[in-house]
Design a protein around this nucleic acid. Structure first.
Length: 518
RNA sequence: UCCCCGGUAGCUCAGUUGGCAGAGCAAGCGGCUGUUAACCGCUGGGUCGUAGGUUCAAGUCCUACCCGGGGAGCCA
């Protein structure tokens, strides 16, 4: 960011960047205040702020301009040209600032002093600062247009600017992740992702949950879940070694082995054992060599944990939660969602409306097995009580059998982790998976084993050291209560809502095996 | 990690039985009074993923590797 390349203009840009968040905060607040002349703005201290070309003050966003009740009055737009159409007597620029799906059409006439010298050269991707009069547009495709009084060039593009006015493959866009937020699709994804993220917090906050900040660095391999990324400051070329030649992690930064977290669940359980209802929402890391459209090495996970709660309450919360997030996105991003419905996955709006309006299907694992056995399908993997459900089984249940999200509960004990509550039948645990069409497992959760003796027995069965989990066991010695929670893959929710086929395209900077550019 | 498919211009792709490397878009130049992925004309642009091999001749056939996609496993 602060690399000193150019002289003056570089410095100015840095100043703008430095003021950015503050200016944005003020811009957000504008919506709740009476409208005023868009070219004159008040600072937060009430003073007038320079509306000149280099002010850091955010004027109206394109979204706000397009939401004006009527044309007339001045307006200013700063953003990036999505497409430019030039003819001899007029130039059209579609300018987008990312505030909404649509750009604002700018009409530039030859009377502008820089029409020949600059305006007619403007192409896709140029950054511009335009002031003018907002008018009803005589053309089709937009309600308003900005008739420019001045068009200032802020930044040009080189001849090698890769984004064109045509469809690009998502594979290509991943290679230019620094530019792809400027595309229609990724821009829409990022706005939807933002709305969904906000909805995660609003859902829990409205219900009195406390957000618990789980650690990113952890010393124990929490659930025995998958490969973990090691965190170390030892010299990889010559780490200190013990007498047997093994690496001596006692000399490492934390005095022991450390890793990036694969789940905040165990810490969330600590929170629930005091604050009753908590949730975590943060990045999670898995070093699995997974190469699929549904896995990332770094992803965001939402993990609520509730004291005095059983599996039924857990499932109810999961259902209410998904519906809340979907409703929030539909309400807040209608234009973006219309685009996804049209260009990315036809019918996704109907699917989401159906999900929001109908209750999730509930099935026990045993019932699911019976349904699969009775389906007459020739599955690649045989269906048998005791074996985990395969992708093809989950897909059949969610996509064909009920055609909406489905909650499968009470899985065989042997295929689930040690911390899940053992049912009275002794062979199943109070686990649940929420399966949705296309994406598959979107939520995994359980009622936790809060009985010390049972938990210890389970850990012994699975060969886990009680020393490593001493604090987890200690929670069961002091005021232990039934509790439950789940983990939800945030990117999978965004995938489900947008209809995007590949999870790498719903996170701004995807990390997958062999790739951590940007 | 396994199975299948692919890699040709900046992008998206075509390339016949092994016989001169192609198109559309983009870029550059010119034209066009209101466009909507604007339109019309002209011009430039190639390590055919990489390294070997077969052949008079390889984008095309063979081998290995690299990268990407789809599916599977693992999971969220």
């Amino acid at each position: 960011m602060g690399r000193a390349r150019g002289g003056r203009s570089r410095d100015r840009r840095r100043t703008l960047l430095a003021r950015g968040p503050h200016a944005l905060w003020r811009g957000e607040g504008q919506r709740h205040r009476p409208r005023r002349h868009p070219l004159r703005h008040r600072g937060h201290d009430g003073g007038e702020v320079d509306g000149g070309a280099h002010s850091a003050v955010v004027t109206e966003s394109v979204r706000e301009i397009l939401a004006r009740p009527a044309a007339g009055g001045g307006a200013r737009v700063r953003g990036w040209v999505k497409t430019a159409r030039h003819s001899k007597g007029v130039s059209f620029l579609e300018v987008s600032d990312g505030s909404c799906f649509d750009g604002l059409q700018v009409v530039a006439a030859p009377e502008l002093p820089n029409f020949e010298s600059e305006v007619r050269r403007i192409g896709t991707g140029w950054a511009v600062d335009v002031e003018g009069e907002l008018a009803d547009s005589p053309g089709k495709g937009q309600r308003f247009e900005l008739q420019a009084r001045s068009v200032a060039i802020v930044g040009e593009t080189g001849a090698d600017y890769p984004l064109q006015k045509k469809r690009h493959s998502f594979e290509f866009l991943r290679d230019i992740a620094h530019l792809r937020p400027r595309t229609n699709t990724i821009g829409a994804v990022l706005r939807v992702r933002n709305a969904a993220s906000h909805a995660v917090h609003s859902f829990f906050q409205e219900r009195g949950f406390v957000q618990l900040h789980a650690p990113v660095i952890t010393a124990s391999d929490c659930e025995g879940a998958g490969e973990m990324f090691r965190v170390t400051t030892l010299d990889p070329a010559s780490p200190p070694r013990g007498e047997g030649g093994e690496v001596d992690y006692a000399q490492d930064f934390f005095g022991r082995e450390a890793f990036l977290t694969v789940s905040g669940q165990l810490e969330a359980e600590i929170g629930a054992a005091a604050l009753s209802n908590v949730y975590t929402f943060g990045p999670t890391f898995r070093a699995e060599n997974s190469n699929t459209s549904r896995h990332l090495s770094e992803f965001w996970m939402v993990e609520p944990e509730m004291a005095f709660c059983d599996l039924e309450g857990n499932a109810e919360l999961a259902e209410a939660f998904l519906k809340h997030v979907i409703r929030a996105v539909l309400e807040r991003c209608p234009d973006d969602m219309a685009f996804f419905n049209e260009r990315i996955e036809k019918g996704v709006l109907d699917t989401l409306a159906h999900v929001v309006d109908s209750p999730f299907e509930r099935l026990s694992y045993s019932e699911a097995v019976e349904i699969l056995e009775a389906s007459g399908r020739d599955f690649d993997f045989p269906v048998k009580w005791g074996a985990d459900l395969q992708s093809e089984h989950e897909r059949f249940l969610a996509e064909e059998h009920v055609k909406r999200p489905i909650v499968v509960t009470d899985y065989p004990k042997n295929i689930k982790p040690f911390y899940m509550y053992v049912n009275d039948d002794g062979r199943s645990v109070r686990a649940m998976d929420v399966l949705v069409p296309k994406v598959g497992e979107i939520i995994g959760g359980s009622q936790r084993e809060h009985r010390l003796e049972v938990l210890e027995a389970r850990m012994q069965e699975q060969g886990l050291s009680q020393d490593d989990y001493w604090w987890y066991l200690d929670l069961r010695r002091h005021g232990s209560v039934p509790h439950a929670g789940f983990g939800l893959g945030f990117e999978r929710v965004v995938q489900f809502v947008t209809g995007m086929a590949n999870i790498r395209d719903v996170i701004p900077f995807p990390r997958v095996p062999g790739s951590a550019e940007f």
